[in-house]
């Protein structure tokens, strides 16, 4: 029955990481789409407001963060294939040999 405990232990970690990356990033992307619409105004929104240029800026920042996260994801796949792993021990990601 040890497997059940081990699996549940792994499962909640996957769930936590998944919620941040798999739901958080799409939400951030949605914020980007929302601000882009706010920035464009007119037909982009249901209430047809005037454009707010700041919205486009916020949108670009959101999309950049999402893209960076995807780049990190790809690095992660590639790295584990080459016997390296992505480490966050210094907060910012670095590549190191697998321990």
């Amino acid at each position: 029955m040890n497997n059940v405990a081990l699996a549940l232990d792994a499962a909640w970690k996957v769930l936590a990481a998944g919620l941040i990356l798999g739901a958080g990033l799409p939400a951030l992307f949605a914020v980007g789409v929302r601000s882009m619409a706010y920035g464009s105004g007119g037909d982009a929104e249901v209430d047809h407001q005037a454009p707010h240029p700041i919205g486009k800026l916020v949108a670009v920042v959101c999309f950049a963060v999402v893209l960076a996260a995807i780049a990190l994801g790809i690095t992660f796949i590639v790295a584990s294939g080459f016997g390296k792993e992505l480490s966050f021990e210094h907060i910012y990601p670095i590549l190191k040999d697998k321990g």
Binding site: A23, P26, A30, V33, A44, E45, D47
Partner: peptide, 18 residues
């Protein structure tokens, strides 16, 4: 669960966008 939360958030955030 993750997809449900993600979908819910996306729809909440983009309300009012055409």
């Amino acid at each position: 669960l993750i997809a449900a939360v993600g979908t819910w958030l996306i729809y909440r955030i983009t309300e009012g966008v055409s």
